[in-house]
Design a binder for these strands. Sequence first.
DNA 1: CAGTCATATTGTATACTTTCGATATGGTCG
DNA 2: CGACCATATCGAAAGTATACAATATGACTG
Lengths: 130, 130
Amino acid sequence: MTESTEPITELPDSLTRLHDDPVDAATTLRERAGDTDVAEQVGCLFAALSNPQRLQLLWALRDGECCVCELQTALDAPQSTVASHLRCLTDAGLVSTRKDGKWSYYRPADPAVFELVDDALAIADVEATE
Amino acid sequence: MTESTEPITELPDSLTRLHDDPVDAATTLRERAGDTDVAEQVGCLFAALSNPQRLQLLWALRDGECCVCELQTALDAPQSTVASHLRCLTDAGLVSTRKDGKWSYYRPADPAVFELVDDALAIADVEATE
DNA sequence: CAGTCATATTGTATACTTTCGATATGGTCG
DNA sequence: CGACCATATCGAAAGTATACAATATGACTG
């Protein structure tokens, strides 16, 4: 019950012209829009996936774990850049780490993320760049 | 064939210590990481979904089209804020518009986006806020 | 055709993100 | 323990996104 108690601000005039019972309509609409906190959490996940280099990191990890220097090679990007993207993915819970001596190996935390990315690929209607 | 021709920059030293044939390893890694342009397109889609208010707009539209003043009510946000989020969703191809006199009605362009969002909800492991 | 209405656009202040060199950390090896 | 290595973190500059008041647009109404 984090949501939908009372109208916080004034309802738009236009709404009162569109609905007989605007207060009731507002309640329904706000219920449909769902909880702000949930939206924020989901938004964070999508934000982690909204960067092309981070997507490429995930793709690189799809077939098995890699250490940072391999990912650095995969993206052809500076070490610190790769490290911060990996931090971001870790914070979002999308990858996990294993240390082996001075090497750090990364892998996808939950393979389900690839379904998400594949669906996105389909929706984005990407033409195979061949 | 937009990708993977030659190593552009120097390979990291560490890679040469990890692989017998670092150039070959680099090629494989870059193939796995996939195409930059594709990553960018998918990234744009995720970016459109990375904002909590835009997610709430989509949720509000899930059960049927709404006009702007209804969405404004659903989010309890100023008109111009809602309008720019709607623009963003439209640009990303996620919603489409129909005009009826001075009212504009918005609806999801492709219901597949809700699968995406639902999967994200599952991955984000959101606790039902009750 | 003047007024009003719903929505779109613009302008801008502010906040967040990204990039990457420099530097810190913590491991390994001689 | 001293040099070196792989990675992480910091910090500043540049870029991008967000919010929202003000204003423009284009439609309906008298």
